[in-house]
Design a protein around this nucleic acid. Structure first.
Lengths: 111, 111
DNA sequence: ACACTACATAACGACGTAGGAATATAACAC
DNA sequence: GTGTTATATTCCTACGTCGTTATGTAGTGT
């Protein structure tokens, strides 16, 4: 008999963590921060093509969740990735999506 | 320079996948299906303590997303986990949450 | 045919959260 | 102090999705 995926007591927190990763703009922010170790808000605003308020709000969410760290330096605030599990999660999902795509095309071709 | 977490073209699909995992009730369904390989709707309704319509809708979402598979047998419909990446994702998140909790208590104790 | 069961779906209201505009706050320069 | 810049926050509206209720549909049995 297989074990549980997660303890019942963790379910709400796990759901919350996944929710933080369920917005494309937040994933794009994480993607940027993976490329450039550290970025300030304006740099992210430029990269995201989104309003400063919008970016700031997502940064606040990700930081409260522990996914980003925040470092203030003068007028600027620098963010960086603070969750070593993120990379693995994204890799897992991407690999799975590729598998699905491959499987799907195989089925299509089999017709 | 680190690589991207995911290709830009995948971002929307990755976000969608995470969104499917961002509801406690859906995680509880996945947890049940991990324990009992295959369950029909009524069995899941009983385990979830939720209305049949509610459970059916979440099952439909997870199935359309490719996370569950569906097998009809007479009047009953049996669902099972169909995404081998789910277990790894949940493990990663849970491990991370535990790390955070440990780190947090360390900080607290250090005061 | 009718009745019953298991499940799916539609219509509805409630709530959460996204983005936009405006405003507040903080740090610097003068 | 005033002014300016970088960032955070508040208020608002719009939209998505949750759960509930009611109804539809498919399969079985008589």
């Amino acid at each position: 008999m297989a074990e549980q995926l997660m303890p019942d007591a963790f379910i709400d927190k796990v759901a919350q963590r996944f929710k933080m990763l369920s917005e494309p703009i937040r994933l794009r922010i994480l993607n940027q921060l993976q490329l450039h170790d550290e970025m300030n808000v304006q740099e992210l605003v430029d990269a995201m093509q989104q309003r400063q308020a919008t970016v700031s709000k997502h940064l606040a969410l990700l930081t409260r969740e522990g996914i980003l760290s925040r470092r203030k330096e003068g007028l600027h605030v620098y963010y960086r990735l603070n969750d070593p599990s993120i990379a693995g999660m994204c890799m897992l999902v991407c690999a799975r999506l590729k598998d699905e795509a491959r499987e799907h095309s195989r089925v299509i071709l089999a017709d």
